[in-house]
Write a protein that binds this DNA or RNA. Structure first.
Lengths: 277, 277
DNA sequence: GATAATAGTTCCATTATGCGGAACGGTGTT
DNA sequence: AACACCGTTCCGCATAATGGAACTATTATC
């Protein structure tokens, strides 16, 4: 389809996936794009609905879905609409538990939580979104996969902006082109220029702030975590709280310790994971 | 490969997947079996390691892994070993949030937790394992011993045995053949006969017990949740606690309310999900 | 309740796609 | 240096995905 496999794509950034573009990696890619359609739909989709969102012919799509059901990646609801299957949960639980980066970061964000008393997030950048990799919440049951694994737009969250600031300039501009600057609150950054300016500040100061830009009443301070190796990825941590309790001054007062935690994680990544074993 | 595609397989049970057998569903199945290898390995695997666990030739396996990396389903660690990718987290988060059954059950298990004060589990049967779909924990220990999405053997857990008891007899016998009766504790059921006997009791009384059969010091009472429709699946709920605090008598005293909760969930499934929208 | 319209499933010849043997390149070991 | 090992790339071949069309089931309309 389309044209040609295109150049080898030196090595993708961040969570190692496609850049949300169009081109699919053969059979597997097609199958996964079906998953994507189902995952990203706000309302339940039945067969024909999926067919419309997809560019596959009926017969083909039908087999693809059948296979995915067979493998437990898709479940069919009572009304014949599709949902993502529980097999994914099974895998995700292991993906999470075994994640190198998360494991290294875990004790640090725990300490950061104890120091600040507020919710701490660990996020990693995937294209123009942030995936929440871990979270230490103030006194709540941990809803494992619900919050963790969630994604949020990068341009209007502390974690996201901090992570973006870690990208090299050319890559950054590429990504920003793909951002849809939706206005979530009155404070949401309006366009690419505003974002670029802000990222300049983040690079200078080492901290990103979210001043109720994504959700009214939620504010945070964040710091970027850069990849210690050639295998590139960018992530970040944040301290988040309700705006009525967490004043801008408090956020500023946590900026230092947040940066320190981030660099502690970076240096642990370097030392703990370097030797070829 | 092997012989013939085999009979149409009327409709698979439970979490809708393959029965852990051999036969793969074409390209997709092969890819997923690679994921399985990586997921189920206790130690990190490098390329050659995976090659040995797989029956694919080098070139083929290499491409499969490359594709999976490309799609974010596999990540490569610093030492070139593989892990499951974060893309899975992203999907799983949505699979969990959108799961019909879990959503219906949620308020009920919450109530059950409030009534008993102990940890409540919601599990669903997949082949001979149980996937934990939800969990409400007593607010003492923050450590997530059993995370959502985790699996445990069915034959030695309360949730698992309860779920098994909901299978029709022929299917049950099929599954039991595939169980590996590993001895986890002194109380673990030893073989198929012991399990069948126990399942008889469960069917009569409506409750399954785990008397430190999977993990020393952990006991629970469970009740099965049968599929209200023709689309078959079996699940169950349990109330779990540390044996030093939760006596056998207490478990028995919770048997009734556990059964009631299970049937409340079943009836909600019927009513809430019946109409064609 | 009959008929039309829509949704979902199956079939099968075609060929694109994944397959896999073999050859190549890199890294560390005796 | 020569060897052994691990990972990557190549390319002719055949399998497995494709997709148009025919068929069945389900829902809407008169």
């Amino acid at each position: 389809m389309s044209e040609k496999p295109k150049s080898p794509d030196k090595m993708t950034f961040a969570a190692g996936g496609k850049s949300s573009g169009k081109q699919e990696t053969g059979t597997l890619g097609k199958a996964i794009s079906v998953l994507d359609i189902i995952a990203n739909s706000s309302e339940p989709l039945r067969f024909t609905d999926v067919l419309q969102h997809s560019d596959q012919p009926r017969g083909t799509l039908h087999r693809q879905i059948s296979n995915l059901i067979e493998e437990g990646f898709i479940t069919v609801n009572r009304d014949n609409s599709y949902g993502l299957g529980l097999r994914l949960l099974q895998f995700a639980s292991k993906a999470w538990a075994g994640n190198e980066f998360r494991n290294v970061a875990a004790p640090h964000i725990q300490k950061l939580h104890e120091a600040t008393g507020e919710t701490v997030h660990l996020g990693i950048l995937r294209d123009v979104e942030v995936i929440y990799l871990d979270k230490i919440e103030s006194r709540q049951n941990i809803r494992m996969v619900s919050q963790i694994g969630n994604t949020a737009p990068a341009f209007c969250t502390g974690v996201g902006k901090a992570a973006l600031s870690g990208l090299p300039d050319d890559e950054l501009r590429e990504r920003i082109k793909r951002i849809e600057f939706r206005r979530y609150t009155a404070n949401t950054l309006a366009d690419a220029d505003a974002l670029l300016a802000e990222i300049g500040t983040i690079r200078n100061t080492g901290n990103a702030y979210d001043r109720e830009e994504h959700e009214m009443g939620i504010a945070c301070v964040a710091a970027p975590i850069l990849s210690p190796t050639d295998r590139l990825f960018v992530a970040s941590i944040s301290v988040t709280g309700p705006a009525y309790r967490v004043t801008p001054e408090m956020l500023v007062s946590w900026a230092g310790i947040t940066r320190d935690t981030a660099s502690a994680i970076m240096s642990d990544m370097k030392t703990q994971l370097s030797p070829r074993s």
